[in-house]
Design a protein around this nucleic acid. Structure first.
Lengths: 122, 122
DNA sequence: TAAATATCCTCTACAAAGTAGAGTAAATAA
DNA sequence: TTATTTACTCTACTTTGTAGAGGATATTTA
């Protein structure tokens, strides 16, 4: 395995939503979680496509659950993150954190950059 | 302007590299910065395409500079972030931060999730 | 027990972002 | 006036992101 692929931003968010929901991570809940937490409205298709690709890449795994208790309906498909998924998430966060480090960005204001020009700690 | 578009992860990183480099933000330096800081090797084409799209979307602006002082070479194209670019960056970071909040992810270990199930602060 | 209703997932298609590298431009050095 | 260096442009393709109609499966209701 040469250089691991990076995940996209949407994938990043979906992975996080799955983590947050823990035992309750299935389609519509994930969708709801993203809508609530980051105000991002995904269409049904957009979400499931992303979930499927994440599973194909081995970053998520799934199992089929039971039907809804309340009022019928099809069985849920529960998702959980894999070790590989956690690593991908970790790498991605680390990269962003490193780039953000030392930058202070304020809404509609100017930006502070470190004085050392191009040298950043490895 | 309805719901603002989100930026991708690559765009996010390129925007940050431009911020970090400040007055020195042009093609090859940006590429170098990303390679150094986050160990991400972009091909020439990948980088410039991203820069161009970012400019089209109004998140970056550019100006043509002088040629290299040392040993000839073509004029540089300097990039700077726009107010809109800063906002996009800010929104994107905020969304990720919110999703990460309360999650503790350790390399190859299990994951800690908040106990409150699905309730997150708006 | 056959609709009606509710819940949730599959499928197909297309748009946008990410990636590559050969080729071009413009300046200095030999 | 050709070689060399620096840096950007162009074209083509792959991967991600996005959408919503439609299908599957269970409960309720008549």
């Amino acid at each position: 395995m040469a250089q691991d692929k990076f995940i996209g931003e949407m994938e990043h968010m979906v992975l996080l939503a799955v983590l947050r929901l823990n035992e309750q991570a299935y389609g519509s809940q994930i969708r709801q979680c993203l809508a609530d937490t980051v105000d991002r409205d995904l269409s049904i298709g957009a979400l499931y496509t992303t979930l499927e690709r994440l599973e194909q890449k081995g970053l998520l795994k799934s199992r089929l659950g039971e039907a809804t208790a309340e009022r019928g309906g099809r069985a849920k498909k529960y998702f959980a993150i894999t070790a590989e998924g956690q690593q991908a998430l970790h790498r991605s966060k680390q990269a962003l954190d490193r780039l953000w480090q030392g930058l202070a960005l304020r809404q509609g204001a100017s930006v502070t950059v470190p004085q050392n020009g191009m040298e950043f700690p490895a």
